[in-house]
Computed example of a mutant assay.
Amino acid sequence: MIVAKQDIRKLTTDQLKTWLTQHGEQGFRAKQIQEWLWKHSVQSFEGMSNLSLKTRQLLDEHFEIRSLTVAQSQRSSDGTIKSSFKLYDGNLVEGVLIPALRQDDDARMTACVSSQVGCSLTCKFCATGYMERKRNLDPAEIYDQVVAIDRQAKEAYDAPLTNIVYMGMGEPLLNYNGTMESIARITSPDGLGMSAKRITVSTAGIAKMIKKLGDDNVKFNLALSLHAANDVKRNQIMPINESNSLPALADALNYFYRKTGTRVTFEYIVFYNFNDSLQDAKELWQFTKKVPAKINIIEYNPISEASFKNTDPQTLDKFAGFLDDRGVTVNVRRSRGKDIDAACGQLAGKNVPTVGVEP
Score class of each variant (00 low, 15 high):
115 S>F: 01
357 V>T: 15
265 T>R: 07
344 C>H: 04
233 K>V: 13
17 K>Q: 14
296 N>L: 01
79 G>M: 00
19 W>T: 02
16 L>Y: 05
326 R>H: 14
171 E>C: 07
63 F>T: 11
73 S>L: 05
151 R>G: 10
314 Q>C: 04
50 N>V: 13
179 T>V: 06
223 A>C: 09
168 G>A: 05
253 L>F: 12
245 S>Q: 06
141 E>L: 01
32 Q>W: 02
197 K>S: 04
184 A>S: 15
356 G>T: 03
273 N>P: 00
138 D>Q: 14
43 Q>Y: 02
301 N>I: 06
69 T>P: 01
88 Y>R: 07
174 L>A: 13
346 Q>D: 08
187 T>E: 02
270 V>K: 00
229 A>E: 06
87 L>Y: 03
122 T>S: 10
330 V>E: 08
286 Q>I: 08
242 E>M: 13
221 N>F: 04
207 A>G: 02
233 K>H: 14
75 R>P: 00
150 D>F: 10
99 P>T: 02
344 C>T: 05
329 T>W: 07
302 P>H: 00
101 L>D: 13
21 T>G: 02
350 K>Y: 10
83 S>A: 13
284 L>D: 12
237 I>K: 01
338 K>F: 03
24 G>T: 15
8 I>L: 04
228 A>T: 11
190 D>R: 13
142 I>L: 05
70 V>N: 02
111 A>R: 09
272 Y>N: 12
48 M>V: 12
226 L>D: 03
152 Q>A: 14
237 I>D: 07
172 P>W: 06
26 Q>N: 14
313 P>I: 01
66 R>Y: 01
334 R>L: 11
29 R>Q: 14
155 E>G: 00
44 S>H: 12
24 G>L: 06
333 R>Q: 10
236 Q>I: 09
125 F>E: 06
151 R>F: 00
54 K>G: 05
50 N>K: 12
159 A>I: 11
65 I>K: 07
